[in-house]
Design a protein around this nucleic acid. Sequence first.
RNA 1: GCCCAGAUAGCUCAGUAGGUAGAGCAGGGGACUGAAAAUCCCCGUGUCCUUGGUUCAAUUCCGAGUCUGGGCA
Length: 309
Amino acid sequence: METIVVLTGPTAVGKTYYSIGMAHALNGEIVSCDSMQIYRGMDIGSAKPSKEERKGIPHHMIDIVHPKESFSVAKYQTMAKEAIGDILERGKLPLVTGGTGLYLNALLYHMDFGPIPTNQEYREELFQLLEEEGKEALYSRLQELDPASAERIHPNNVKRVIRALEAVEMGKEPLNDFSGVKEKTEDYKVILMGLTMERSKLYDRINRRVDLLMESGLAEEVRGLLDAGLTEDDISMKGIGYKELIDYYLGRCDLDTAVDQIKKNTRHYAKRQMTWFKRYEDLKWFHLEQYAGEEEALEDMIKWVKAKR
RNA sequence: GCCCAGAUAGCUCAGUAGGUAGAGCAGGGGACUGAAAAUCCCCGUGUCCUUGGUUCAAUUCCGAGUCUGGGCA
């Protein structure tokens, strides 16, 4: 079985630097695992590595979708697996890097998303029901049609309730229960690594990075996307950094408030990511504050991968 | 110097007709099947500024002090 390396960790922890360093040392190519970097034109806010930062290392799964288009885990799974297969075929090491937990699961586990795509018309019908009769009505409909899913989903989690209802409507049978044991993928052997640091230090880094993104022109990027016809209803614009600046441009708050919100939401996001990663039992954590410098940490990571292969 | 207002959770404040107190935010924990940077769930003990007094009982009422705002000189 072929081997892939996964490097994950919360936002702003420094994944980019280490991924590129490892790719260099291990003859690898990077497969991004990030739900925002897939969008073209959303560069600053998603902290995409620049051409210079990439140092000639090929990056896959970046800039693959127009921000008006809809995307999904299922699509990610298919495309990322293709990219990985291609890299392996060329005799190089795939280095999956990013912090989108669900996308990572789609690669790490045997997750068959099945033949149930989205159904926009039915979703709209359900939104109609939601507006007219409230989320209780949605939920009781799910209890009736798919009691097992209703058991798993909280009534307030409208988005999931709608998706489950959609599955019943489209598939005429309920979604599988994945909540129990997850089988690891048989496609490849995975070396799973995570970067972390003390929470307060990570939060400091996040706050500083948001200021840096603003200096790099995040506000102008958002302005440009709005001018290009994107709106707050586009899913791509619900990313952190984008939605808050839209509030500013729509006059709902001043710029300082928007920036503070970006920082806060990024901190919350990092926390949620950590919750997700804690579930991976075989993940090797690298605590970055324990190293004298970046080079030393990078060396240790490379050593670890070489020992594992 | 005088007058007024305030002092309660990390922050902003509410409240107790006297029986040691609770919201929002921040923060923490968790969930996660086609929107996932999304969406959702759970978590609140702190010298109620200090000190005298009244009282069975004071964070609450009264007096003094300290600090912070604002006003007048």
